[in-house]
């Protein structure tokens, strides 16, 4: 939870500081961005998409950790789990750990699809720029840089999602026995 918040605030402040420097033409940042638009787009894509992916990345990583520790026979702290899932429920003692994990996974589901949809839009726009529907070569470079920057957190989300759903389904099937 602490690392998630720390990374989120670092990224938000980087974004804010970068935007202020850029818009007020301070500290050569805008000159550099104009000279190398594809690098700037890559960084914007990486930072911006990581901001949106942050909850998903840490959510699926946490799910994997809790589910695998449950599978190893340890009993995770339910309150900690609930706190990290950012959910409130009543009668906590009646919930099993695996059902809490399933709740957490269900909460993350709409975020995941919204995130994938945003990445899909960026990908399609990059394709259209690349095929020459709009803009010139520089525009297609910028779109491609943005797409590659966005692809890095997207790959993390994809992998962690697969891993988490595997461990959660294992934990659920073990508890139902």
């Amino acid at each position: 939870m602490k690392l998630e918040k720390a990374i989120w605030w670092i990224l938000v402040s980087l974004f804010a500081v970068g935007s202020i420097l850029f818009f007020f033409h301070l500290w050569l940042l805008s000159a550099w961005a104009i000279a190398h638009p594809e690098y700037a787009a890559f960084i914007i894509g990486l930072l911006g998409f990581w901001l949106f992916a942050n909850r998903l990345i840490f959510g699926y990583a946490g799910l994997t950790t809790f589910a695998s520790s449950l599978l190893k026979g340890q009993e995770p702290d339910k309150k900690d789990l609930l706190l990290r899932a950012r959910q409130k429920i009543t009668k906590l003692e009646e919930w099993t750990v695996a059902s809490l994990l399933a709740l957490w996974q269900a909460v993350l589901e709409p975020y995941k699809y919204a995130y994938y949809f945003a990445f899909f839009l960026v990908f399609v726009c990059t394709m259209l720029f690349e095929l020459g529907f709009w803009g010139d070569e520089i525009a297609s470079w910028v779109a491609k840089g943005l797409m590659f920057g966005a692809a890095i957190p997207t790959l993390l989300v994809f992998g962690l999602d697969l891993l988490a759903s595997h461990y959660v389904s294992e934990a659920l099937s073990r508890e139902s026995l």
Binding site: E38, Y39, F148, A151, L155, G159, L162, L163, H166
Partner: peptide, 30 residues
């Protein structure tokens, strides 16, 4: 995907391709 190892391998292959594409893109632009 039953096996976490398989997930790992798939993600490593995808990461390799992503790194390759990103690297060759920046090489191409420069």
């Amino acid at each position: 995907m039953r096996n976490p190892a398989l997930v790992f391998v798939v993600c490593v292959v995808m990461a390799l391709f992503l790194g390759w594409a990103t690297g060759s893109f920046f090489t191409e632009t420069s």
